[in-house]
Amino acid sequence: MKMSKKALMVISLAALAGCATKEAVKPHKATTTRSSSAQASAAGQSSQARSRSMSSASLTSFSHFVHFRTNSAVISGVNRKVVKENADYLEAHPNTRVRLEGNTDERGTAQYNMALGWRRADAVKHMLEVLGVSGKQLTTISFGKSRPLAMGNNPKAWAVNRRVYFDYKYYSKG
């Protein structure tokens, strides 16, 4: 059952890749203080990270950020790998809960961005579920454009801010 689900996902991902343009944003460096090593392994996909057994992967060994194109909630390019790594972790740790936090850049209106951030978080949740993660482990929220990580008014800052963040700490801090 799980296998067929995964096969289905591969097909749908291929379909997504087909319609996505090739300007997928790589996970940005210096986004949080949380894990520079996670950023490096996600962006660089080091062989060390790849050879590591997924079931023993620690929370800091993969990125917690999924990025998006402008006004889009489609997960494309390298970001599919980020979701997959988080899915593997969540499947290996069925008692872990995570809050998926959708965010947008500052362009456009506050409340439309609220909805857009929600669509992004839902898109990540949907992909995780298709990959086999239990919905009970997942909650979604959107902050719209109210919590920018990068403060500039420029394309680089916007790319950083169009994100879904896997907040593993939200439920562990009690």
């Binding site: 949080t32 203080t33 919590r147 990580l149 990068a150």
Partner: peptide, 13 residues
């Protein structure tokens, strides 16, 4: 109004 407070992405509103 929002003012940066703590780590990036955190503000006081």
């Amino acid at each position: 109004t929002m003012f940066p407070h703590g780590a990036p992405g955190h503000f006081r509103y």
